Amino acid sequence: MRVGIVGGHGKTGRAVAAALAVRGVESVALGRSDQPDLAALAGCDAAYLVAPNFHPDEPAYVASALAACERHGVGRVVYHSVASPYLPAMPHHLGKARSEDLVRRSGLGWTIVQPAVYLQNFDLTRPLLVPYDVHAPFGFLDLADLGEAAATVLTEDRHEGATYELASRTGSVADLAAGAGTSAERVEVGPDVPEGLRTMFAYYDAYGLPAGTLVLRALLGRP
């Protein structure tokens, strides 16, 4: 089996490639530019699709990748969405919700994964300073768990047509800090922070981003 990873040079793509390698599955990493060279999808049995962060038109990006999959005979695709894609307050989440719709109507065999916030976004060796309520509820996902879940759905037939929310644990940033023996504090964002990030932080401040762990435990067959 051969898997093309669109967005394979980022931390997500590397985690997926590493998990596939453990299973003896060959993967090829494709770039994350606005128009990545997708010719390398030729000869791939499946594709894992990750769009660049805060892409200005993710549905167009995904549509292009889906067309390339069809053109090169890739029979199945796993789309990397986000936990709670339909959030009108966050335009980049809505872009993923629209992209999910494109994937479902693509005619390809598909699976959608909806990852929670990465645990690796937090440096637990020092006090955590975040621009939102440190007690807001979150689902957190370990990159190694993401890679293993992605490898599972890419290499097994029984996941076609499924949408999986993925989180390794639940809690708050304050809980993460306490577990690591450090502290967590809410700080104000500076004037140079892009509007998309400001919107996201404001949503986190009010609601967090909860996600459950049961699906991931079922996929991996372990706690």
Rank of each mutant, 00 (worst) to 15 (best):
A97E: 02
D142C: 12
Y132N: 03
P91E: 05
R98D: 13
D142A: 15
H72E: 10
Y86F: 14
L128I: 08
H93M: 12
V153H: 09
L124Q: 07
L119P: 09
L87S: 15
P88R: 04
P91I: 06
L141F: 01
E70T: 08
D101C: 04
A149F: 00
L143M: 13
G95I: 05
V113H: 07
T155C: 06
S84E: 15
V78M: 01
Q114I: 09
S84D: 15
T111V: 07
D142V: 12
L87V: 15
R126H: 11
G107Y: 12
D142Y: 15
S84P: 09
E70L: 05
A144R: 13
V74P: 02
W110K: 07
H80A: 00
V130W: 04
T125L: 10
G109E: 14
V74C: 08
V134P: 10
D123T: 08
V74M: 04
G109Q: 13
R126W: 11
T155P: 02
G107A: 12
V74W: 06
D123H: 05
T125R: 13
L94V: 14
R71L: 09
L141C: 01
H80F: 02
P85A: 04
D133W: 08
H135G: 13
G147C: 04
A144Q: 13
M90N: 12
T125S: 15
D145F: 05
L108R: 11
T155H: 01
S84A: 15
P131L: 10
A89V: 10
Y132T: 02
P131G: 10
A149K: 00
R105Y: 13
R76E: 01
C69M: 01
D101T: 12
V134Y: 11
I112R: 07
R98H: 14
T111H: 03
A136T: 05
F138A: 10
P91H: 06
S99F: 03
D101W: 10
Y86D: 14
P91L: 06
G73S: 07
S99Q: 03
L124V: 11
V134G: 10
Y132G: 01
L108S: 09
V77H: 03
D123S: 02
A97F: 09
A68Y: 04
L119F: 11
Q120Y: 12
R126C: 12
V117F: 14
P131N: 11
H135I: 06
D133P: 05
V153Q: 07
T125W: 07
A151E: 06
H135Y: 09
P88E: 03
T111M: 04
V103G: 06
A89S: 13
P131I: 10
F138V: 11
G147W: 05
Y86S: 13
G95T: 04
A149D: 00
G75D: 11
R104D: 13
A83T: 02
V77T: 02
A144K: 12
D123A: 07
I112M: 08
F122N: 15
S84R: 15
L94H: 04
S81Q: 00
E70P: 00
P88L: 01
R126K: 14
